[in-house]
Design a protein around this nucleic acid. Structure first.
Length: 481
RNA sequence: GCCGGCAUAGCCAAGUGGUAAGGCAAUGGAUUGCAAAUCCAUCACCCCCAGUUCGAGUCUGGGUGCCGGCUCCA
């Protein structure tokens, strides 16, 4: 098994070697819970889910952490800066803690709808104030941070490698600074670790003062350390996190902990809508519910995202989503056709199912293409193409019967890894096989008698019950849709 | 102004320098009582201009357009 991933830090694909053999520890920058996440946010979270699933399919033990940022961050570093959560709270006259609760619930509901496997920890920033304070104290002691009144800043010049992730240089940042220079700071690129403001709605009484709140970046450093240790395998986020957020995390953590922090940094490219950035004014900032209202299943969106590569900007359009939905439906149809064989492989692990598929000559080429695609920096396009290759092969009349189970195994594994098909809904009006057979036979008889009205009526009954009837040269066949 | 990325058919999207995966849609045919499904077939000179090379979507330079960061943002 050789997994290769593109590392933002080195700007190239690298062979992945876990720090601890057989284990992967990873951290994902999660949502700021001040307003409901949109589909663009979910592209990043679906990517995290895919990583998790593929690692587990490779029999690695995964520890996965995704933070919830529930304390607002400053819109700028000047003292007048407000934070989004505070703004939202003031705008809606709702207590910020209530907003956090409400948005968090919506977030988890969306994750569930998208079939995301829950991370092991979803730490909240406000639950980790002591950890952040402790880390800031280390930075002060080591001379990487300085205090001005009740504000504390990280001294960028104390970390010579600042800029290694983003490629930015401290000098350029200074030259391009569009902000009013905060006179408190020694250098414009210095960033806040802790701020104090009596008017802030969310504030804590700490050694740094009575009315303080954390800077934007420190929460991830502190929480990652707590749940994953000082040095862990990989950290992900959207491309916009590269700078300043992740750059600052690196500076803080490596300064505080004397050593490398994260081995592999992975970032997802933004989702575009209608060829450009989604924006409120264009009215194309969609939520998962918006997709559902238009008649799509959240898994259609999941499939759309996973048909493309995470490092390429994906253009979301309703037409593209429709295309993904149709494509997913045809794989779902394949699943139904393999229902009998599916029962023989269900319960297998993804690793075992994939191995079984690779062991069968007729299916192996597709299984290999699927695996190799994912091994190569999660090339899901290639992996999905393999599934369509499998579909074509299975649907050919001469597909060898013994290999149908292997084909089912591959599709089953693909579902465990990509999350293609929602869990079966309990069909309350489900017909038994015998009842279906009777209806199908009755329809065949009606057709033979040229009573097409009756035949169509029977077909409608079956369709309504979720049964697909196919007239083939070998007679009528049916399967559950 | 300074960093970084992308540009492939109507749409979405892969692509180690050797003559363009896959899907959706569409079109023709087979099949059907009509459909649906399925099967067969058709459907791209890879943004523009130079250059390197025996050979470039794939490398280099210059344009144009879009995206990200430098400011909260996946």
């Amino acid at each position: 098994m050789v997994l290769r991933f593109y590392n933002t830090l080195s700007r190239q694909k690298e062979v992945f070697t876990p720090l601890q053999e057989g284990e992967v520890r990873m951290y994902h920058c999660g949502p700021t819970v001040y307003k409901r996440p949109h589909i663009g946010n979910y592209r990043a979270f679906l990517f995290a889910d895919l990583l998790r699933r593929w690692f587990e399919a490779n029999e690695l033990k995964v520890t996965q952490v995704m933070n919830l940022t529930d304390v607002g961050h400053l819109t700028d570093d000047a003292d007048a800066g407000e934070d989004k959560l505070q703004q939202e709270a003031e705008r809606t006259k709702v207590d910020p803690w209530a907003i956090v609760d409400q948005v968090s619930q919506a977030f988890f509901a969306d994750l569930n709808a998208l079939g995301v496997v829950p991370a092991h920890h979803y730490p909240r920033a406000t639950d980790h104030i002591p950890e952040m304070v402790a880390m800031i104290e280390i930075l002060l002691e080591k001379g990487h941070a300085y205090r001005v009144g009740d504000n504390i800043y990280f001294d960028v010049h104390s970390f010579p490698e600042y800029g290694k992730l983003s490629g930015n240089r401290v000098e350029d940042l200074e030259a391009g600074a569009r902000l009013e220079i905060n006179q408190e700071k020694r250098h414009p690129a210095d960033f806040a670790l802790w701020k104090s403001d009596p008017h802030h709605l969310m504030k804590w009484n700490t050694a740094f003062g009575e009315d303080g709140f954390p800077g934007w970046h420190i929460e991830c450093s502190a929480m990652a350390r707590k749940y994953l240790g000082d040095h862990f395998d990989l950290h992900t986020g959207g491309e916009d996190n590269v700078f300043p957020h992740h750059e600052c995390e690196i500076a803080q953590s490596e300064s505080a902990l004397n050593g490398s922090f994260v081995s592999l940094w992975m970032h997802t490219r933004f989702l575009q809508v209608d060829g450009g950035k989604m924006s409120k004014s264009l009215g194309n900032v969609y939520s998962i519910d918006d997709l559902i209202e238009r008649g799509f299943h959240p898994f259609d969106f999941r499939f759309l995202v996973q048909r493309g590569h995470y490092r390429t900007s994906l253009n979301f359009t309703w037409e593209a989503l429709k295309g993904a939905a149709e494509a997913r439906k045809s794989l779902q149809d394949l699943w139904s056709r393999l229902a009998n064989e599916m029962s023989k492989v269900s319960g297998l692990s993804a690793a075992a199912a994939l191995a079984q598929a690779e062991a069968a000559a007729e299916v192996a080429p597709f299984a290999k293409e699927f695996r190799e695609g994912l091994n190569d920096d999660l090339n899901t396009s290639k992996a999905v193409a393999a599934l369509f290759g499998l579909r074509t092969a299975v649907l050919r009349a001469d597909f060898p019967e013994p290999n149908r189970t292997a084909a089912a195994a591959l599709l089953y594994a693909a579902d465990l890894i990509l999350g293609l098909f929602p869990a079966e809904e309990d069909s309350a009006d489900g017909l038994s096989d015998a009842e279906i057979e009777a209806l199908v036979l009755a329809r065949t008889a009606a057709k033979a008698a040229k009573d097409f009205a009756a035949a169509d009526d029977l077909r409608n009954q079956l369709t309504t019950a979720g049964i697909v009837v196919e007239d083939t040269p070998q007679g009528a066949k049916w399967h559950r849709g």
